[in-house]
Design a protein around this nucleic acid. Sequence first.
DNA 1: CCTAACGAAATGGGATACAAATGTTAGAAT
DNA 2: ATTCTAACATTTGTATCCCATTTCGTTAGG
Lengths: 238, 238
Amino acid sequence: MDKQADLHVVRSISSLKKQVVEALRTAIFEGRFAPGDRLIEREVCEMLDVSRTLLREVLSQLEAEGIVQIIPHRGPIVAVYSADEASAIYELRATLEEMAGRLFVERATESEHKSLNDAYTELRRSYKNKNNTDHLLVKTKFYAALTAGAHNPMLVEMLRLIHGRVSMLRATTLSQPGRLAVSAAELGEIVRAINKRDAEGAARACRLHVRSAAAIAAKLLSAQQAVPAKAKATTGKP
Amino acid sequence: MDKQADLHVVRSISSLKKQVVEALRTAIFEGRFAPGDRLIEREVCEMLDVSRTLLREVLSQLEAEGIVQIIPHRGPIVAVYSADEASAIYELRATLEEMAGRLFVERATESEHKSLNDAYTELRRSYKNKNNTDHLLVKTKFYAALTAGAHNPMLVEMLRLIHGRVSMLRATTLSQPGRLAVSAAELGEIVRAINKRDAEGAARACRLHVRSAAAIAAKLLSAQQAVPAKAKATTGKP
DNA sequence: CCTAACGAAATGGGATACAAATGTTAGAAT
DNA sequence: ATTCTAACATTTGTATCCCATTTCGTTAGG
């Protein structure tokens, strides 16, 4: 059994493609490429030390995920979302997370309830330390627990897509100081409603959390749009 | 204006890759490959007369769309959805179409209202003729009109994904005789509520329509699962 | 007769090189 | 200074090669 587990790890590492997808995706999410930046195939190939063939497969997949856009005969760029699209993303996210919250109450097992509460306490602990590094990590974990309990694999997948797009927006709109405490409180409302097995309350709390995130994003985006397409100049290599 | 439109058409033809994606996708939706069928790269290359490199890019994209699954070191197969996943798909679709219906009432312009009604009358006309060919086409048009009026591009994209998966299910679950009339009636309810500018009514009608489709799919799928994974044997080349 | 080990063929995973089409840019001529 | 053109950069698509893994048939041994 132990041997098999080891093999499993080795096996899951296999497929260089998935590794590259993951690497490029996180590189973009971390803001190492700015939205609108061109991803010149040869350059990116060298950076990641993979062949062009493989990279193009990767780019195809990231295009389908909405992380890059491939402009015909101009090549791939990091996807850029307008303010309108951003608000659309948050609107959709609100609907989906509302659904997730409701379904969690209706379907989650005891152990899933426990996982969610554990994730929440870990999140609160992390938010108190200003240890800024793993905030996203614990939040991801929280959402993983929330969506897992909804028992709808398609919903999980769609939320993965949506959160990816939100991450892209976050790359442009820096996170706000003081937002963490508010965010923790909102997530706390979700957990509280869920612990009371109040489906509608959970749904409402989820929606409110997204709305609040959307409001901040909208403010930052509109502020950023005042100084618009200069991005190209500022994102160039110094 | 006319000239520009022509140019647009020409431009959209570009990119062999997109053509191949489209071709493979519709081939699968039309049931020319059964779910679970292996898509041997070299064979499909010859069928479509493209290089293996290009085909693999296409397969990457279709994998991200959920139309094919690429199993490590075994290659691509036509995606196969379990009954659980199918019900998850319909559940999600209900939520999204409910959202679309509500937003349409809140946001659609007069001309979008007109487009929807036009699409509906065309659909009813088509459903009356047993001319079976273009039922999917007019229904697609109807949904395009519905989602366009919701003014949320992300919702449109997600619904495209979902409808793709539903198409895959339809490939396995043949459509039911007599379903057309019921379907038309349900869509009529949506249009009626929208024309009364009744957002909640529209949302409810959308949800009901999906539920009814889901019920049929569930019945057919469970019936099919009684004779399970023999599929492989029956779909092999004689 | 059954089973396990071995090996060959089929297939996917990945890299490299090359040709053609297209977009971009810099420079020349007016 | 503007426009035309030629050179260059980059994408798009193909052909071919090599290696790893799976699969399946065969054979040897119990």
